[in-house]
Amino acid sequence: MTEAEALPVFADVDTGVDDAMALAYLFASDDAHVVGIASTAGNVPVDQVCTNNFGLLELCGRTGIPVSRGADGPLSIPLRTAEDTHGPEGLGYARLPPVDGRLTDYDAAQAWVRAAREHPGKLVGLAVGPLTNLALAMRIEPALPRLLRRLVIMGGAFGYRGNTTPVSEWNVHVDPEAASEVFNVWGAAWGLEKPSHLPIVLGLNLTEHAAMTPSTLGRLAAAAGSSTTPMSVLDDRGTRSAAANPLIRVLEDAMRFYFEFHFDQGEGYLAHLHDPLAAAVALDPDLVRYRQATVDVELTGTLTRGMTVADWSGAWGRYPNAHIGVEVDPEAFFDRFIARVGPFAASLVS
């Protein structure tokens, strides 16, 4: 598939471990043409996100993609970051090549609008961090929902526990006002007029089924033709990857930190690939089964602030504003991830 035939994709990321895996998937996909990357404060502060994005672009040979800096923090509350989950620089134990990257002279919100105007009706938007930049972009261009081909959001939890509070998922918790604004503006923009253009929302109820294990990571290294040492929960903490392939080495060092975090949370020596699943769905929505509903975000509850609430039955009397992911085949996703990222990693050293 030529670049002209590929889907133009704009990725909004707060680059931690699973964001990096999502970007690697997009770079490895012939059916994706990444036209821009917006850096969002979330897993780590926004300047570190920019640094991580430039390092990944250098590592993956994609240095021509514009990177834009987003807001320093959420719309109306202080920023909360997640170095305990993703490591002090956002990528666990991984170290990226130092790059003196040049940011665009416009911010991430403007980057959303520019990309949508340059690819009207064709652009696929992918938002896998807090929705701050997207909310600000929709203030600049209220018609943004109508300019996109589709939008995929990783965020929320529907009929499922939270991973930050008992009821709130991380991305929504960091900036619940932004998430609320995006859902409400999008619903007002489309309503019942064209429900096929409602955003696809993948919550923890779906993404936690995409659990990577050391054996899956070993399959990825094998697909890249890279020698490596299988990971184990018995390894010393912080053991560095022995992979010969530079991309596999970075992903393994990042994932080890993520495995250790999940293990310490009592979830096993594994890691949930929330953002890579969203990237895969952005290119092929048929990977997931959905239900249409109206989504809003609780902003005032003492115990429930940041909770994503889905009105499945129409009790609110409001137009649906989301297609909520409810079912996925994890094996099909991982097969596709490995089939794309493995050979891509091999191509970087050929």
Rank of each mutant, 00 (worst) to 15 (best):
D12S: 15
D12M: 13
Y25A: 10
Y25Q: 13
Y25E: 12
L26N: 08
V35Y: 00
T40Q: 11
V44Q: 12
L56A: 01
P74M: 04
P74C: 10
L75T: 12
D84E: 12
P98T: 10
D100F: 07
L103D: 06
A109N: 04
Q110W: 02
G125F: 08
L126W: 13
G129S: 15
T132I: 03
L136S: 11
A137T: 09
A137D: 11
M138Y: 05
R146Q: 15
G159A: 12
N163A: 10
E169Y: 06
W170Q: 07
H197G: 13
N205P: 08
A211G: 04
M212Y: 05
T213G: 11
P214G: 07
L217W: 04
G218A: 06
R219H: 06
A223I: 04
A223M: 08
S227Q: 09
R240G: 10
N245T: 00
N245R: 06
L247V: 04
I248A: 15
Y258A: 13
G268A: 01
Y269D: 01
Y290Q: 01
T294N: 14
G301I: 04
T302S: 11
G306C: 03
G314P: 00
W316H: 12
R318P: 01
N321L: 06
G325V: 00
V326M: 14
A332Q: 08
A346H: 06
L348D: 09
L348F: 09
